[in-house]
């Protein structure tokens, strides 16, 4: 289904919102940098960096939200029945 509104109009409408969200992320990173300790062992920061790289990626089917969801998800274990030792049905 096509988005009824044109790309230019949509961007103009969303521009201030996008600007505010990016500024919020930037300020949060600054706040973290100003705080004590380091993030060498952080599990979260590499995920955030991966997600930010997806944001900057080219159009390609417009699936950025789905890709970022998967970055922040545990991978699917196809063998979960065996892993959890579920009784056979």
């Amino acid at each position: 289904m096509e988005v009824p509104i044109g790309a230019a109009e949509l961007l103009e409408r969303e521009y201030l919102g996008i600007r505010a969200k990016i500024l919020e992320i930037a300020a949060t990173f600054d706040r973290i940098d100003r705080s004590r300790g380091d993030l060498v062992a952080s599990r979260e920061m590499p995920l955030i960096r991966q997600a930010l790289e997806v944001l900057l990626s080219e159009k390609e089917n417009a699936t950025r939200a789905e890709q970022i969801q998967l970055i922040f998800s545990r991978p699917y274990d196809e063998q979960w029945i065996k892993t959890l030792e579920m009784p056979s049905r």
Binding site: Q69, F72, R74, P75, Y76
Partner: peptide, 11 residues
């Protein structure tokens, strides 16, 4: 919720 959603939904 969150990071468990994908695996849980597939299960």
């Amino acid at each position: 919720h969150l990071e468990d959603k994908y695996q849980g939904t597939r299960m």
